[in-house]
Amino acid sequence: MKKAIALVLVLVLALSLVACGAKAEEKEAVAGVCWYNFGDTFIANARSTLNNAAANGPVKVVDADSLNDVATQTSNMNNFYTQNVKYLVVNNINTNAIGEMIEQAKEKDVTLIFANTNSPTDEQFATYDKVYHVSSVATQSGTIMGEALVKYWNEHPEADRNGNGKLDYIMLLGIQGHYDTEVRASYSVQALTDAGIGTNCIMETICNYQRADAQNQVASILQSNMDDVEAVIACNDDMALGAIEALKAAGFFKGDDSFIPVVGVDATANGVEALKEGTMLCTALNNPVILGNSVYKLLTLLEEGKPLTQENVGIEGTTVEGHHIYINYVGITADNTEDAAY
């Protein structure tokens, strides 16, 4: 019994020592970065850009993989707080907990940067002055897809394969409830509606951003609606390419009269190949290199105590507004594939 008490006492003492040490310690210029998924093509590019930039910069970067799991992201964030980082960059997937995340950062006095995710609201920004947001405007990607379809529809009267006067499309969603996928879906259809084109959704289905899922599901949808499908809107290129495989297998893309417009987002190497080959109509490029560089530029400005302005950021393709750095999407078609090289 005595031993046990002694042990507890020793532990308590040891812990209090550690706690004191942590409080007294000055924060080093380290940024903890939580990426949602290292395996995601886009993230992999942004991540390597950021890490390369950090190799010769004033702020050290350590990163962690959320494995597309909210719980893992939370643990990773807590680990960074324990490591006493000065900046926390979160490629947030826990989109309903932004308020709580800001509160926690304020408590720990850590600068919080939301990257490639939806923005905190103005009220949330008002609660803490060390919150920033670096991201593309997801709505733009939807609009680019929609406008490409508008152009195609207006130039090709034969695109109305079933002659019902409406554009009948298949919508391929990424992950359920994922912010990007939702706005891409709604803004692409909105662009069609805004152009006065009637639409009809044949089927909206979740393919987890995966090519094989999209290929399987589109094959099935095609068999039951072969004569009605007039377009495929995919919330990323991998799913668009899966849809194209299924369309090819069902006899499309054999000649000029069997073209079905398929649009995607990301402009991956394979996606650009498909644009050149003439199977994919359009994709929207969200440049991961600009994302990685913008995040690092922001960290540098903060570390050097300089204000966040358009001039100070100085990266082409970005727009600075308050605590936001917006990264503009670029529409890529067969005509400007060179713009997708980064």
Partner: peptide, 27 residues
Amino acid sequence: SSLYFNMEPNSSQPLGSLLKGFRNLGG
């Protein structure tokens, strides 16, 4: 798999441009 996939110059890009003969195994 992740290490292999992330090797330079691929750095986690989905692999594509596969040989026609190979693709015929599947299609």
